[in-house]
């Protein structure tokens, strides 16, 4: 829903971290996104392409690591892939479940070159 804002936050953090690291060039940015993070991955990719044009890393490669959402059932302890926010346990049909992963929205790493 906020893909453009998210893309701009990514650009800001990447440039800040690259500065801190004394990087001369940013080669690869790896982003980790959970399938239920609230961000549409296609829309984020589109927004990143636009946002990157205004940054110092317009030629960098962006890797999107997609984290499939997994939930655990409080009733039967079953772990299962959660397709949506309703995350009903396929074994016991309970909706008393919680996420183990799938909400991630972070910059995992950047690969940079340094002048020295």
């Amino acid at each position: 829903m906020h893909e453009l804002s998210i893309a701009m936050s990514i650009a800001e953090i990447v440039e800040e971290e690259a500065r801190k690291a004394g990087a001369s060039r940013i080669e690869i940015v790896t982003i980790e996104i959970g399938t239920l993070s609230g961000v549409m991955i296609d829309a984020l990719q589109f927004a990143m392409e636009e946002v990157m044009l205004t940054t110092s890393f317009s030629g960098a490669k962006i890797n999107y690591d997609i984290v499939t959402a997994v939930a655990s059932c409080e009733e039967c302890c079953n772990e299962f892939v959660a397709e949506d926010l309703f995350k009903v346990c396929p074994v016991c049909n309970s909706s008393k479940t919680y996420y183990i992963r799938g909400k991630e929205l972070k910059i995992k790493s950047i690969e940079v070159e340094r002048d020295n």
Binding site: I6, A21, E27, L105, K106, S109, I110, E111, V112, E113
Partner: peptide
């Protein structure tokens, strides 16, 4: 002006939440 073969590339792990600020 840079040479990939010399291995200056460094991976910086960030693990930083995009909404961290």
């Amino acid at each position: 002006d840079h040479n990939h073969a010399t291995g200056h590339a460094t991976i910086i792990p960030l693990e930083r939440n995009i909404l961290s600020k």
